[in-house]
């Protein structure tokens, strides 16, 4: 029983980690909560569904296309909505409201196009999983875990060592200083939206291999992603991954003795605990920097 809960926690954590990663990457460059990140996750899943089931192309190709398109969508949201707001020097509250607006708008659009009913990507009979350390793990779950870890490590290496990745950190530290050295901060922001949104798309596709799709799936997902990012220390990449797995585990182990319906309450309980005790998260980056 406990082993199974741990396994479930790891799978949930893999998804939370991916969402939190993209969210954190974007947060680093723009410093506001891109709530609409959650609907990019939904769109990723629905695109994968459309390509594989409706159009009928090879799943791998479909997933690849869906991930790229999710990235383009995130970039589009930034260029069409956030960029004009940035030019007007809009307040954080305006950005948050705009972000909610985008979320609801696109979620309704999905409902209109696909209907409110549940869809499923899975085909064929449910296969018996592998028995590992007293748990049953399916191939799909292994795929989710491995993909999530690979993408996390890839992103970490990219931001740590590549030139463009470093420019993301530079803009995160100080956008004006970045422009002084010849970096165009707008391009870096675009890059972070593109990469971050691809990660959200990937998370949406992975989860739809495991559970059903519904138009509202992005809502809990982004809440969990944000909680994970805050637990880990908002903006930190290893922190987001850690926060994702921590949250996944805590939720699933938490329902060992109580009813499963308490999962979300546990997540928010942990959030409030962190905000009270350690608001900077485990590996936090200070949001505002004191400057001369």
């Amino acid at each position: 029983m406990v082993q199974q809960l741990v396994a479930n926690g790891i799978i949930a954590g893999s998804i939370y980690a991916l969402i939190a990663l993209g969210f954190a990457l974007i947060y680093r460059t723009v410093k506001f909560f891109h709530f609409a990140h959650g609907v990019v996750y939904t769109v990723g899943a629905y695109l994968a569904y459309t390509f594989t089931i409706t159009v009928g192309i090879d799943p791998l190709v479909s997933f690849f296309l869906a991930v790229i398109l999710a990235g383009v969508m995130g970039l589009g949201i930034d260029r069409l909505v956030y960029y004009p707001l940035r030019r007007q020097k809009a307040s954080d509250l305006i950005f948050l409201l705009a972000s909610f607006g985008i979320f609801i708008f696109i979620q309704n659009l999905i409902q209109l196009l696909y209907g409110a009913q549940i869809l499923t990507l899975r085909r064929g009979p449910i296969v018996e999983g592998h028995h590992v350390l007293g748990t049953i793990i399916t191939n799909t779950q292994i795929l989710i875990l491995v993909t999530s870890i690979l993408l996390s490590v890839a992103l970490w290496l990219y931001v740590k060592h590549s030139k463009l990745g470093k420019s993301i950190r530079a803009v995160s530290d100080d956008p004006v200083a970045a422009s002084i050295v010849g970096i165009n901060p707008e391009r870096v922001i675009g890059l972070s939206f593109f990469i971050g949104s691809m990660l959200a798309g990937a998370a949406g596709i992975l989860i739809s291999l495991e559970t059903n799709l519904e138009p509202t799936m992005g809502f809990t997902a982004i809440l969990k992603g944000i909680i994970a990012a805050i637990i880990g220390g908002i903006g930190s990449i290893p922190g987001a991954v850690f926060g994702g797995y921590f949250l996944g585990m805590a939720e699933n182990l938490g329902i060992w003795k109580i009813q499963a319906g308490w999962k979300d309450a546990i997540a928010f309980g942990i959030l409030i605990l962190f905000l009270l005790v350690r608001p900077g998260g485990i590996m936090g980056i200070p949001t505002e920097r004191e400057r001369l």
């Binding site: 950190r169 995160s172 002084i180 400057r291």
Partner: peptide, 12 residues
């Protein structure tokens, strides 16, 4: 430019 207050990248 060397700006007022230096503005190096503190976390790099």
């Amino acid at each position: 430019l060397v700006p007022e207050g230096r503005r190096i990248f503190p976390r790099m």
